[in-house]
């Protein structure tokens, strides 16, 4: 794959990047550099996540890409990868900003994803080819992620996560910061909830982000139509309670597990609910 070098001051140097303090002197790019000149939104979060975080990252990636927005992220494990995947699934544009050379794949298990992004999107980094991923590269890399975008969405971040650094940089750079609210019991959501407390805009549903960007989203699927009466009853219970164990659902519905199990299972196959760590929740 050909590596293209863009120098600061060059014609195709992303305009938004010039506005930040300490813009990189040159960018090493692999792929379609044009996608940075359109609308860009960063979708970021922790590497260790729950299924809730991963699903949301994918959904937001899909939603943004379908609306023609470039999804920018860091290609790390967890949220980052899911955001890229979501964008690629929707056939949209996505850019990965690396903390190593453009020819180095980190983490190595994302090899296939990286190839996909190169082919259908863009790999960009300020580090010359061959640079190994050092831990001090990543916080610096984060200023580029936020710098390239008009808004940053933090999906799930633990306390003291690198994503919070990015959000802070984004705020300094004058970018909009969005955060996905999470269950307050869970330490995986501590960071993103804290952002909301500190003034980030909460995303109440996936399409919210489009509304804020002034783009109209797609209609929500009607669960009522595609679910049977029994299924819809449990769907509503789950929707009202957030996440529940099977036993809690049974108790709430007054039904036995032998009866509830198949219904939950079928709804999961239909894609309305999801399970993680032994709990069920409505898929947004």
């Amino acid at each position: 794959m050909e590596i293209k070098v863009i120098n600061k001051g060059g014609a195709d140097y992303p305009e938004r990047l010039l506005q930040i303090s300490g813009p990189p002197k040159q960018l090493y790019c692999c792929g379609d550099t044009d996608i940075l000149s359109g609308r860009c939104v960063a979708v970021i979060g922790s590497r260790t996540t729950t299924a809730y975080g991963r699903n949301t990252a994918k959904a937001i990636g899909r939603c943004l890409a379908a609306a023609g927005v470039t999804v920018v992220s860091g290609m790390a494990k967890g949220i980052d990868s899911c955001a890229h995947e979501g964008a690629l699934e929707a056939g949209g544009k996505t850019a990965a900003v690396l903390g190593c050379g453009p020819d180095v794949c980190y983490p190595p298990e994302n090899r296939l994803l990286m190839a996909d992004i190169q082919r259908r999107g863009l790999i960009v980094t300020e580090y010359p080819p061959g640079t190994t991923p050092e831990r001090f590269n990543f916080p610096r890399r984060n200023r580029i992620i936020s710098g390239l975008c008009e808004a940053v969405v933090v999906i799930q971040a633990r306390n003291r996560s690198g994503s919070l650094i990015t959000a802070e940089l984004a705020a300094e750079q004058g970018r909009d910061v969005f955060a996905v609210p999470g269950n307050i019991d869970s330490q995986y959501n501590l960071g993103n909830n804290k952002l909301i407390k500190e003034g980030a805009t909460p995303l109440v549903c996936v399409e919210d982000i489009l509304e804020h960007l002034g783009i109209s989203g797609a209609d929500e699927e009607d669960a009522r139509e595609r679910l049977s009466e029994r299924e819809y009853m449990l769907f509503e219970i789950l929707g009202s309670e957030g996440e529940m164990t099977v036993d809690e659902v049974c108790m709430r519905a007054g039904l036995k597990p032998a009866y509830v199990n198949p219904i939950l299972s079928v709804m999961e196959m239909k894609g309305f609910i999801s399970s993680d760590m032994g709990k069920f929740f409505v898929k947004k």
Partner: peptide, 25 residues
């Protein structure tokens, strides 16, 4: 997948089921 039992919560769920007058409760 085994979750710890939260009896209080289970009881609340049962009460909620009673309050909503569910025929299956």
């Amino acid at each position: 997948k085994v979750n710890p039992v939260d009896l209080d919560n289970l009881e609340k769920q049962a009460e909620a089921a009673g309050a909503s007058g569910s025929a299956d409760a």
